[in-house]
Design a protein around this nucleic acid. Structure first.
Length: 654
RNA sequence: GCGGAUGUAGCUCAAUUGGAUAGAGCAUCGGUCUUCGAAACCGAGGGUUGGGGGUUCGAAUCCCUCCAUCCGCACCA
């Protein structure tokens, strides 16, 4: 049972006799901010003061007078300006616990009105190796899918793979010019990946060199302006002078930075140029950028050779990505990539033209949207389509095929503008009765506060990240096992769960909207809000059952009851029963960290206290022992279920 | 320049979306192992929630204004 929902229902019955709109007031019933106020609190009397023109304490008294909660709660108390404090009856809590013990869903009800969700997440480019930037989308999307499903919604997950873009033009170009046949036969994906990097390297070099003169000119322009400003006489106005000085400082900083960047890039280019082999290669492929675009265009136009290569490469690339998903234990219902929508793009554009939503501007076909300065371009002047076009086609397909109530896009916050336009365009196009939501997230930063990169400045590969997390986890697990609990092989398995779990939890416990600093040490820490800590709490419970030789499944069905005999037990019991609320909170704004907050801050903390204060196997009576065993079991099950929804496994020993 | 975000303890982050005394972890200091896993627990110090003004019973949260940082801004995704 969702206790908060139940309480709100009772309050609704009373409040609806006093005001018309009760929903916002019911929102103000929540878990108590401090246990000394009870278990829950209702803050709805204060805002009614103006509306009803009476003192808020008096209003609170009226609510308390009229409400019927005698079965669930102790008599309500009014505090301060009109807070209504709610304390559950121990007997009622015990009845809820008894129900949860024998319930597979540990008391989490299914939603009354299931909705159909499409979840669009992960969406890597299949032609390049997955990198650190894909963690968040993948992990957040997966946890939301799990949770929505568990609550009873219908969820369709769709990995919108980038399998049709310029990256394939690059691979095709590389394959045609630089391939090593033996290496390709040996390990095709590794060779394709090498080709991608090789082409990328040449493009960066060629483009970088081309851009140098302009950058130098810009820099000297900046220096000139700097000199000019420095020489500028005082205006006599103190405020204006101060402002000028500040602008000068800013300009100076910018110039310094630009100069530093330029020197750095120049050094890099010089280093490459110094390699005679590479220099020769670069000279031979001086027009590589346009050549790559040309290969891409040919692919899109149905060129036989390129299409054949694409068909050859694609399954191999997908297999490679699949390996990572297997390690992460993430599955998709569909993986309809960009290529899937290829032949739907022209009709989409035609539809926009026909309905008068799109018009040409500077050669490009644009959708002008109210409230946006720049239009959304759906066809380039060279006739090619863009990702905006694909995204529109995707919405159309999903609506026709699945008729969802909502489509969630778990994508980087930097694409916020794009999605706002996309959603506005979709609405204009007629898709008004679907919730389109950009579930955005911040950047993964390095310890230097800049986007996470390797020392040499490359993006960090996801696979290496997983390896590192697992190997560190193994070290930690080994060094902490003084009693030799585990065999060598078991260490390896546990390290997988702890390492991958730590990585996922580290991400999910962060508020998704802000950037966060990536640190192995923090996410694999034994203390604090980490997967390791939660997994440990679970393992500890299993250890008790082992030591006491308890058949916990039998005990669950034996009819034994949980009895509250101490404050620590009561505190833990009320937290255990809050799982449905925590899931509700998580899903309300698609924030997995709401669940981690509950698991750690509330449940695990209460469990620790209980563990310290209440002997289980050495309890005073047989009844108490059974009761506490069941409470441990219930807590462990909530932890296990909560972690499972986050995509994290538990282990019996660690 | 325009638009969007962010700014909370020394550090990394929370804060149930306007609620009671702003919380955790790390770090620092002090206490707890012959007793179910000390990988743990208990306690202490540490804050003008970037500055200033406003809205109200009540503000980290909403409004205004400065300051700082980050991101996006017409044919990449």
């Amino acid at each position: 049972m969702n206790i908060l929902q139940a309480l709100r229902g009772r309050f609704d019955a009373v409040l609806s006799t006093m005001v018309d709109e009760t929903a916002p007031l019911l929102e103000m019933i929540r878990p108590a901010s401090d246990t000394k106020f009870g278990d829950y609190q209702a803050n709805c009397a204060m805002p009614l003061k103006k509306k009803l023109g009476r003192e808020s304490r008096e209003i609170a008294a009226e609510i308390v007078e009229k409400i019927d909660l005698s079965d669930m709660c102790e008599p309500l108390e009014i505090a301060g300006p009109g807070f209504i404090n709610i304390k559950l009856k121990d007997a009622w809590i015990e009845a809820q616990l008894a129900a949860a013990v024998t319930d597979e869903r540990i008391g989490v009800p299914l939603v009354a009105e299931p909705k159909k969700y499409i979840l669009d997440f992960s969406s890597p480019n299949v032609a390049k190796p997955m990198h650190v930037g894909h963690i968040r989308s993948t992990v957040i999307g997966d946890s939301l899918a799990n949770t929505l499903r568990f609550l009873g919604h219908e969820v369709i997950t769709d990995n919108h793979l980038g399998d049709w873009g310029t990256q394939f033009g690059m691979i095709i170009y590389g394959f045609k010019h630089f391939r090593d046949n033996d290496a390709y036969a040996e390990s095709p994906v590794a060779e394709l990946s090498r080709l991608y990097r090789e082409v990328r390297k040449i493009i960066d070099f060629v483009d970088g060199q081309k851009a140098l003169p302009a950058r130098k000119a810009k820099l000297s322009e900046m220096s000139a302006e700097l000199e000019e400003r420095k020489a500028a006489p005082s205006t006599g106005d103190k405020g204006a002078d101060k402002k000028a000085a500040k602008e000068l400082q800013k300009l100076e900083r910018q110039a310094n930075e630009a100069s530093k960047e330029l020197t750095k890039d120049q050094a890099k280019l010089a280093e490459l140029a110094a390699d005679p082999e590479f220099a020769k290669l670069a000279a031979e492929h001086a027009d590589i950028s346009s050549a790559v675009l040309n290969e891409t265009a040919k692919l899109h136009a149905g060129d036989e050779e390129n299409l054949a290569l694409w068909h050859e490469f694609l399954p191999k690339c997908r297999e490679d990505i699949q390996r990572i998903y297997e390690r992460l234990n993430v599955k998709f219902d569909h993986e309809l990539g960009e290529s899937f929508y290829h032949d739907q793009l022209a009709p989409v554009v035609d539809s926009f033209i026909e309905q008068g939503f799109a018009k040409e501007s500077e050669g490009a076909l644009c959708v002008f949207l109210e409230g946006f300065k720049a239009p959304m371009i759906i066809r380039k002047k060279d006739g090619a389509f863009l990702y905006a076009t694909t995204d529109l086609a995707t919405i159309q397909y999903r609506m026709n095929e699945w008729r969802p109530d909502a489509i969630l896009y778990v994508v980087d916050f930097r694409q916020g503008d794009h999605f706002e336009k996309l959603f506005a365009a979709a609405k204009k196009w007629g898709y008004t009765d679907v919730e389109l939501k950009h579930v955005s997230f911040g950047t993964v930063m390095g310890e230097d506060g800049k986007p996470y990169k390797t020392r040499s400045g490359d993006t960090v590969g996801l696979e290496g990240l997983l390896d590192e997390a697992v190997s560190r986890a193994e070290k930690i697990v080994r060094s902490n096992d003084k009693d030799g609990l585990l065999s060598d092989e078991q260490y390896k398995d546990v390290a997988q769960d702890v390492g991958i779990g730590g990585l996922k939890y580290g991400d999910l416990s962060q508020n998704r909207e802000t950037d966060y600093v990536f640190s192995y040490d923090t996410m694999l820490a034994l203390r604090g809000n980490t997967a390791t800590y939660m997994q440990y709490a679970y393992a500890r419970s299993q250890s008790i059952f082992r030591n006491g030789e308890i058949d916990i499944a039998a005990l669950r069905s034996s009819g034994a009851k949980i009895c509250i005999t101490s404050p620590a037990e009561r505190a833990l019991a009320t937290k255990v029963l809050r799982l449905p609320e925590a899931l509700q909170e998580m899903v309300a704004d698609y924030r997995p960290n709401q669940l981690t907050i509950y698991l750690f801050e509330e449940l695990a903390k209460a469990y620790s206290t209980f563990f310290e204060q209440c002997p289980v196997l050495k309890a005073e009576t047989a009844e108490q022992k059974q009761s506490r065993l069941l409470l441990c079991d219930l807590t462990a099950r909530v932890i296990q279920q909560g972690l499972a929804l986050l995509g994290i496994s538990t282990v019996d020993k660690m």
